[in-house]
């Protein structure tokens, strides 16, 4: 059918189209990438919880995932490498009524931005942080990440990685996050439910999404086809809600433990404590 023959009011939109800047499509992400499904789950969760568009803020850092904030039709901030979390903290503390989300990659959040991550957990700042962990620096061409599994090859570990990788849910848990979960980008519905659950909570909430990068990670690690990594996720995943986060380290030959691991209720947020302090000082 010729596109031009469809009247505009007859065009059927995809349910999530209203959230996207369609004029910016196609996006830059490669076939098989997990960022798209992750954003899809996030958008569906926004709809499920019923958060209006004008309340949504999307802050990203640098890397493939960083580009996401420019594709969504919400207030979007594509910041510097590693600084998405503190940028989002400043914004959220000034406008606490907004739903502020940081969606960024493993290199951005755990290498260059690692210090901000643990301190934001400790302070219990009211943020939802989603990490698309693809085990590699994708945009720069496949260099070693703090999440690259032991032994894996990258362009800067051509003989195999000798560094232990971060167990990011354990790091978040130990640093004080009130919600910690891990899913993969093929578990879209479970991920959506988990994001929605996190959105209805207050405080520092963290969800890790294991995400295929066939081009920069898979090709060098015997998973070269677009669905090879997805297949690894499908075959190796075990869902264990409430698992002890110290036991969910990702190791290549072992099962991938997924689930909603931590839910702490009643821990006051930084903003709540700041307002309490203000009352105390003013009442002096």
């Amino acid at each position: 059918m010729n596109e031009q023959t469809i009247a505009e009011d007859k065009l059927e939109l995809h349910p999530i189209d209203k959230w996207l800047r369609s004029e910016r499509m196609p996006h830059i992400w490669c076939p098989g990438c997990g960022i798209g499904p992750t954003l899809y789950a996030w958008i569906r969760a926004l709809d499920r919880v019923g958060i209006p568009k004008e309340k949504v803020v999307y802050v990203s850092g640098i890397g493939c995932c960083g580009r996401g904030s420019g594709y969504l039709d919400v207030d979007g901030f594509h910041t510097t490498h590693g600084r998405a979390i503190p940028f989002a903290i400043g914004l959220k503390l000034v406008k606490p009524e907004l739903c502020v989300n940081v969606i960024s990659g493993d290199g951005d959040l755990f290498s260059i931005g690692g210090n901000h991550f643990i301190h934001a957990c400790r302070r219990n700042v009211d943020l939802l942080v989603i990490c698309t962990n693809n085990f590699i620096y994708g945009m720069t061409g496949g260099q070693l990440a703090p999440t690259t599994p032991l032994g894996d090859r990258s362009t800067t570990s051509p003989y195999g990685n000798i560094e232990p990788s971060f167990n990011t849910p354990h790091l978040a848990d130990a640093s004080g996050a009130v919600y910690v979960a891990r899913w993969t980008s093929i578990h879209v519905r479970r991920l959506e439910k988990s994001i929605a659950e996190a959105m209805e909570m207050k405080g520092f909430r963290y969800i890790e999404v294991l995400s295929p990068c066939p081009v920069s990670y898979g090709r060098r690690n015997k998973l070269p086809e677009p669905d090879d990594i997805a297949e690894w996720f499908r075959q190796s995943s075990i869902i264990r809600n409430g698992a002890n986060t110290s036991e969910v380290q990702i190791e290549k030959e072992k099962p991938l433990i997924l689930g909603n691991f931590v839910k702490r209720v009643g821990k006051p947020t930084f903003y709540e404590l700041m307002k309490k302090l203000e009352e105390k000082v003013r009442g002096r």
């Binding site: 503190p86 940028f87 914004l91 907004l98 210090n115 901000h116």
Partner: peptide, 17 residues
Amino acid sequence: FEDELASIAAMLGASWA
């Protein structure tokens, strides 16, 4: 903040708010 990197990033976010 934990350092000056975070401090200036937070200021930018706050100003945008």
